[in-house]
């Protein structure tokens, strides 16, 4: 089985979010980038398929050269090869189109992406890839087994979960639950050394236009101070929620 894990390179959640160039660009100054958490769960599940079922795992990112450390980290965790599509993505749709080209050329059986990335929170790339390559698509995956060309997927739904069966080629939007958090791996020395020798192929993008463009950013208005209510005066809280906030 050939697996492609899509890796979004995102600012760590604890990063300060600021913008430059007249609020049109994300300010990367002092920001630490990580593998998107949803992708980390997917990558770890891919490692299971590699170790238990002999799958071959490639990781991919659409981005500039600055994302390579993130791909190297994925290699150090155990992926066999990495691909970087050398373009700074315009939007989710254009990322999906670039990925679709690579997926068609490489005949991947299983594409693991994340439910959403924590930077632009588009939640669109995995579904779009599936639509573009004509693969089956299951979103919000919290469990995945593959036997031959048959896949059994558990997905989170509102208020519970659903088990579905489908066939490869398959694209999933994964999230926590795909593996346990305790199964996530931190690259060790040996992994880091081996990663240096693994192929990281840079491919040039196909020319693709973006369907949407990011024009500018705004930060939410600073929040007013909290209104404290004494624990002995909860009538006051009820009244505030009813009369002032109008939420009950």
């Amino acid at each position: 089985m050939k697996i492609l894990v899509c890796i979004s390179h995102v600012p760590d959640t604890t990063s300060k979010i600021n913008f430059t160039e007249g609020d049109t660009k994300f300010d990367t100054n002092g920001v630490q980038f990580v593998i998107n958490p949803n992708d980390e769960f997917g990558l770890t599940r891919a490692m299971w398929f590699k170790e238990k079922q002999g799958a071959n795992v490639t990781v991919i990112n659409v981005g500039g050269a600055d994302t390579e450390p993130t791909l190297r980290k994925a290699l150090a965790i155990g992926a066999d090869a990495a691909i970087r599509v050398n373009t700074v993505p315009a939007d989710g749709f254009s990322v999906a189109k670039q990925l679709a080209t690579v997926i068609k050329d490489g005949a991947y059986d299983l594409v693991i992406a994340g439910r959403e990335s924590i930077d632009y929170n588009g939640g669109m790339v995995p579904g779009m890839i599936a639509g573009l390559v004509g693969a089956n698509f299951v979103n919000n995956c919290i469990g995945l087994e593959v036997e031959g060309t048959n896949a059994k997927v558990i997905r989170e739904i509102d208020g519970g979960k659903e088990t579905v069966s489908t066939n490869l080629p398959l694209v999933i939007g994964g999230q926590k639950g795909l593996v346990e958090e305790t199964d996530l791996r931190i690259p060790n020395m040996r992994g880091i050394m081996m990663a240096r020798k693994k192929p990281l192929t840079v491919v040039e993008p196909s020319s693709i236009s973006g369907e949407t463009s990011s024009m500018s950013f705004e930060k939410p208005a600073p929040k007013g101070a909290v209104t404290l209510v004494s624990a002995d005066n909860l009538d006051e809280l009820v009244s505030l929620l009813h009369n002032e906030a109008k939420v009950i």
Partner: peptide, 11 residues
């Protein structure tokens, strides 16, 4: 965007 830490104006 940015997990509710900012808004993006998208065209």
């Amino acid at each position: 965007a940015f997990t509710n830490k900012a808004f993006e104006i998208t065209q």
